[in-house]
Design a protein around this nucleic acid. Structure first.
Lengths: 112, 112
DNA sequence: CAGTTATTTCGACAAATATCGAAATGAACT
DNA sequence: AGTTCATTTCGATATTTGTCGAAATAACTG
């Protein structure tokens, strides 16, 4: 049984952090960050990381959902590019700022 | 079967991000960040988050291992305090800097 | 339309993680 | 030493995640 989430923000942040919390995904992301704005195709990514296609799809979806990468079709390939810079700064800010807001953790009555 | 990790840094970073990648842990961390340097006992944390003792111990261990919190005994309680500020900045830097280093992803011969 | 290449979906399964309650441990107080 | 309070360990179980290969889909090429 899943417990209801307290705040949407917290849920999103957790998902983003979780997306980064895998060595394979981090490795993929590194390739993309290094590749710069031109990005890499999924096939290339597979070659560099040694990860199978289907597994790669899986990880890429997670990174994409977290807003850490973007994908777009180019011919029969799909090109992935990192957008992690802004994202990670936002996540850091989340912890540093949002967490420090002077709200009372007890009074968490879903003020959405 | 576990694949050998490429770089120790990547492994550590992934573990740290993974530690943040849980709504419950993020919630706990938020309490601690808000509580400031004085921190909170594990019991208090349980009251505020509604998480059972044993589960809390589990999460706290993960946060602690990741260097996001510190624990120390005070009487019969254990006081936890966040040290996330520096940690998160370091993690952000990791992605922004380390990942952008001009190394060739294929030539992963453990440089440092 | 048939063929080729790139990616995704679909099961299936292994491994890791989350969760709980009960019992065990550790620390303080009497 | 015995009692009480705070935390941890243990064992059990449910859920999630990671992984793969094979088949399905999508996009170009002729």
């Amino acid at each position: 049984m899943k417990i209801e989430s307290q705040t949407p923000t917290l849920t999103l942040a957790a998902a983003s952090f979780a997306a980064l919390g895998s060595e394979q995904r981090l490795s993929v992301l590194r390739c993309l960050v290094r590749a710069g704005p031109d990005g890499l195709s999924i096939g290339d990514l597979g070659d560099r990381t040694g990860v199978t296609g289907s597994t790669l799809t899986h990880h890429l979806k997670i990174l994409s959902t977290a807003g850490l990468i973007q994908q777009q079709r180019a011919g029969r390939s799909i090109i992935c590019a990192a957008v992690a810079y802004a994202e990670v700064e936002a996540l850091a800010n989340f912890l540093l700022t949002e967490c420090c807001a002077d709200a009372d953790p007890n009074t968490e009555h879903d003020h959405g």
